[in-house]
C-alpha cells in the first residue's frame, strides 16, 4: 500500500472502464488482482469474470493501452484463474454505480452458495427499489448477468448474478 508507484498504477487502471458495463472500472469489478514491480518491470495480474467472457481479451488490451498512454513501457499483463473471481470482489462503489446504471448488483455473498441452490435471493428493482421482482432467465445479455422483471413498475432489468 505504501509504494507510491503502485498507487499510481492503480489510479491509471481505475480509469479503465469495463467494455460491457462502462460505468464501472476494472478495479471496481475486482478483475485486477495484483500490481507489483519486479525491479523496474511492472506486472499487473488480472482474472476473468467468466471463463467464456468475450470481454476478457478486450479488457487486457484496454489495460495495455492505458498503461502505455500513461507512459509505462516495461510492463506485463498476466492472467490468473486462482482464486476464481467472485462477485464478492465487486467494490461498494462499483455496486452503487451498477444500480445507478440500471443493473441490480449481486445480492448477498457468493460464499454462502444460497443463490445457487433454489433459495433465490430477493433482487430489488434498480429503478423503483420494489422487491416484487421475477427472474425471467438466469442467463442474460452477458455471461455475468441474469434477466429480471419488476412486477411493480414493469421495468425489465439485468441482475449481476452472484458467482
Amino acid at each position: 500500500m505504501g509504494d507510491p508507484r503502485i498507487a499510481a498504477v492503480r489510479a491509471v487502471l481505475d480509469g479503465v472502464p469495463d467494455p460491457e458495463i462502462p460505468v464501472v472500472t476494472v478495479v471496481d469489478l475486482g478483475i485486477v488482482r495484483d500490481i507489483r514491480f519486479d525491479g523496474d518491470r511492472l506486472v499487473v495480474t488480472i482474472t476473468p469474470t467468466y471463463t467464456g467472457c468475450p470481454a476478457t481479451k478486450v479488457i487486457e488490451d484496454a489495460i495495455r493501452d492505458a498503461l502505455t498512454d500513461a507512459g509505462y513501457t516495461d510492463f506485463a499483463v498476466e492472467t490468473t484463474l486462482s482464486p476464481p473471481w467472485t462477485t464478492d470482489w465487486l467494490s461498494e462503489r462499483g455496486r452503487e454505480k451498477l444500480r445507478e446504471f440500471g443493473i441490480a448488483p449481486p445480492v448477498g455473498s457468493a460464499a454462502t452458495k444460497r443463490a445457487l441452490f433454489g433459495d433465490a435471493p430477493t433482487v430489488p428493482c434498480p429503478r423503483c427499489r420494489s422487491e416484487q421482482t421475477t427472474c425471467v432467465s438466469e442467463f442474460g445479455s452477458t455471461p455475468c448477468k441474469a434477466h429480471y422483471r419488476c412486477d411493480a413498475c414493469g421495468e425489465p432489468f439485468d441482475y449481476f448474478k452472484c458467482l
Binding site: Y50, T51, G52, C53, P54, S137, E138, F139, G140, S141, P143, H147
Partner: peptide, 10 residues
C-alpha cells in the same frame, strides 16, 4: 440466450 451463454462458458 441461455444456450449460447452455456456455449460461451464451455
Amino acid at each position: 440466450i441461455a444456450l449460447t451463454n452455456h456455449a460461451l462458458d464451455l
